[in-house]
Design a protein around this nucleic acid. Sequence first.
DNA 1: AATGAATGAGAATTCATTCAT
DNA 2: AATGAATGAATTCTCATTCAT
Lengths: 186, 186, 186, 186
Amino acid sequence: MPRKKIERKDLIKHSLDVFKEKGYHKTTISDIANACGLLKGSIYHYVESKEALMVEVLETLRDHYMNKVFSLAYDDNFQPEDRLRMLAVKSEEIFLEERNGNFFVNIGLETKNTVEEFQSVIREFFEQWIRSLTYLFSFKLPENEARLNAEVVVAEVEGAAMLTSLLDDDQYLKRTNRKIIEFFGT
Amino acid sequence: MPRKKIERKDLIKHSLDVFKEKGYHKTTISDIANACGLLKGSIYHYVESKEALMVEVLETLRDHYMNKVFSLAYDDNFQPEDRLRMLAVKSEEIFLEERNGNFFVNIGLETKNTVEEFQSVIREFFEQWIRSLTYLFSFKLPENEARLNAEVVVAEVEGAAMLTSLLDDDQYLKRTNRKIIEFFGT
Amino acid sequence: MPRKKIERKDLIKHSLDVFKEKGYHKTTISDIANACGLLKGSIYHYVESKEALMVEVLETLRDHYMNKVFSLAYDDNFQPEDRLRMLAVKSEEIFLEERNGNFFVNIGLETKNTVEEFQSVIREFFEQWIRSLTYLFSFKLPENEARLNAEVVVAEVEGAAMLTSLLDDDQYLKRTNRKIIEFFGT
Amino acid sequence: MPRKKIERKDLIKHSLDVFKEKGYHKTTISDIANACGLLKGSIYHYVESKEALMVEVLETLRDHYMNKVFSLAYDDNFQPEDRLRMLAVKSEEIFLEERNGNFFVNIGLETKNTVEEFQSVIREFFEQWIRSLTYLFSFKLPENEARLNAEVVVAEVEGAAMLTSLLDDDQYLKRTNRKIIEFFGT
DNA sequence: AATGAATGAGAATTCATTCAT
DNA sequence: AATGAATGAATTCTCATTCAT
């Protein structure tokens, strides 16, 4: 019997892939083990439960967005307009490549009322997203309007991502991003 | 042993309630039977499987939206602007009272890639919604722009409904509807 | 596939048999299902968990002892000495036929520090036993001495039952009962 | 990575502690490793299986009783009555400090019919105990009566220890020992 | 020796579904 | 129709044991 080693971060990566593909309830520990080239018992070497694994996946992804995407909003090397464009481009890329809408939304809606533990990480993701947009908009707008517009943008992008996912058609998301950039980015 | 009769439409109604509350996978046939005052074996007198039940629930709800909400768009007794207002008011009411976002979206995202049968009913719901808005917008805009705007509106409403659900805050949805009415309804 | 029916009380009876034979931890739900001629999933039609099943078994057995054995102590149709003799004979019979010592003791010791729920039923069994002996002894002895002697007798019988079980030799239990009857029963 | 050395006898000591606390089946190799400050894989450097470990624990404890407790019966430096007293005092101390009855009894009952290997060591423990008491009683009683009384005493002490454990009350054991010393020790 | 990763054989439990009454 | 019992496959999780480093 081969004794393959895997890194914790590979486990998280593979788990994210499977959870994205099948959602939370339809994903079995066996599916995840398979994706890692392991047997199901081995997963419990890394995490103590399926729930704990999902929490770690969500936290990792939230941190990833924070560090790689939302942080662009605070990069002084670029003009605010350019930062907004970069941020929009980046999130469009991510959403499109996943073909399945936004992971936080999908998991959040699926596990609402059943797995409370996930909700706070999901809320943090949205709060960070909205905050980074608010920061950018506040270069041009008064504080409360900036926040309002940030919320609207997030809602629009998510709505478009959802349609893109449900109706299997890229255009919704692409068009929305274009509109946002035109509207604020000039 | 109570020998309660239930009407098919009550089964569908109760099923919808439970599915809304718990989602598809977390809902058991037992939950649904309980909600109907029956035992689980009895459900199979009405439907042949959990999947078939959900399909019927989705179809019923789609028809309900068509007949009670989207049909407002075609009611010649009112001005197009008023029809739009009525349509927006009605869907806001529905979304808000459910506290759980839009059922079609929730089920669609949860069962994507796992239960194909549901997707076509869900697509029909969106198509009818978009079509009814397109019709209204076409009083003021050229055909292709009307369609585009309809899609944007649906995306915005859904995005707002989702934030309202995930962040447990009415304002997103209310504000979006207000904006739409202002924008188009005058 | 045969669709055999079983009565709840048969489930309890068979469960008792298996738990007696293998102890709590070594007994699987499958073992119990087999003993009932069922498949393991079916057991959950009757009880919600292995623990709950054991609690019911313990309670049933405690009640059985109370109604069939300890109640002899309060039967006015016989002289106290005869009641004592009957009680001793009866419990000897039960202990010997089980070849495994006293079920309450076995389960109580095995699950100490791990399954708290069982302990209170077990304590009740001993309390009822001691109380019935106390009542009989109080015909001849002052109250506090009667209680003391009852406790000693229970300890002796249990000690003997244990040796009988561990060393696989009837004599310990038989001899102890004889001694008790001689000592008090005259 | 700490590379702690442990002595075989510490492993046995810690294993005994854990087995006493949790019983045989509820104790995991991990529990034992933890108690030793090791990880579970390391245990297999010392013993080849959980069963073999328990056998060694039982043998060690049996030898300990033989050398430190039962051997008192054969110590010519004291009068037989004093040896009996010392033996009683010693075993009371041990039983009371463990709060969990007698380890041989607990394990013997828990693993009866499932792990045969343990039973012979357990029988040896009882045989040595009975033999040492028989030897002491034979200073005053004919051989067969001495053996009989020894068996009765062991049964009484064990019965009392069991009640003490199950009912969480010292008195049973203490009272029994007092009685024994009074009865024989004069 | 000690570690830590992996294994694999169960364990308890869940649940959609079937079906005799 | 409704019931309630049974099924059996699937699922999460546990744990003694192995073994390369």
